[in-house]
């Protein structure tokens, strides 16, 4: 997984509360066999007119010309609520979103984001309001420093944010659950060797037909 250290980007101000995972990625896109490729369907119902990929809705913030390539989402409270689908962070990550800032995030969604290398920054509602105000008219550049737990915005403001130590360690080092488990590889191997010795019948030759 890509490590998250610092990030410089404009913010995408998505001024809606309770954005659920069905809005982030509608259920018709869950039949996919890949994690990749969902970015084009991110916020599908808001982003395109009449579900037509060739007809972007100019009123939707993701389609703003001056925000193309932006990697930070600015959102309102309870972002990511609803179904537990991991397709939501997959879609955000595939689009290129690396961090989101909001007054609060839904639980399972927050968990899924950490698994997928997306930094979630929770700030006070007043701070969020200030950022929305600054970001509305023209792109607002921010600098995020995860190690220092700081956010600097181009209008000269500095904010610090909290993050659970486990999640910070994971993001800073670009570790996923598998990598964290593989830190125990020796213990797994030793356990497995003992098992093979005691119960060789649990191990078999692989056949290819």
């Amino acid at each position: 997984m890509q490590a998250f250290t610092t990030l410089d980007s404009a913010v995408i101000p998505l001024d809606r509360a309770n954005v659920d995972t069905d809005a982030i990625i509608p259920k018709q896109f869950l039949k996919t066999i890949e994690r990749q490729g969902l970015g084009q369907f991110l916020f599908f119902d808001w982003r395109y007119r009449d579900g037509d990929l060739s007809d972007p809705n100019p009123d939707f913030v993701l389609n703003r010309v001056d925000l193309q390539g932006a990697q930070v989402l600015l959102a309102q409270q309870n972002f990511g609520c609803g179904s537990s689908r991991e397709h939501a962070p997959w879609a955000l990550a595939d689009y290129g979103i690396r961090a989101a800032i909001a007054p609060s995030f839904a639980d399972i969604f927050a968990n899924n984001c950490v698994q997928n290398g997306i930094l979630l920054i929770t700030l006070q509602q007043e701070t969020i309001d200030t950022l929305f105000l600054a970001a509305r008219a023209a792109p607002l550049q921010v600098h995020i420093d995860l190690a220092a737990q700081e956010l600097h915005s181009a209008d000269g403001q500095h904010y610090s944010f909290d993050i659970a130590p486990g999640a910070k360690h994971k993001l800073l080092n670009g570790l996923d659950d598998i990598q964290m488990t593989l830190a125990h590889a020796d213990a797994i191997r030793a356990f497995e060797a003992e098992r093979r010795r005691q119960m060789p019948w649990l191990f078999r030759e692989v056949q290819h037909g």
Binding site: I33, R35, I178
Partner: peptide, 25 residues
């Protein structure tokens, strides 16, 4: 608890993203 798994059964509906995750990493 970290549990050792002896047998893992796979079918077509819940495995594609798992394989593509391995591939990506």
């Amino acid at each position: 608890t970290l549990l050792y798994i002896d047998r893992h059964l796979l079918h077509e509906v819940t495995s594609p993203q798992a394989f593509s995750g391995l591939r990506a990493a």
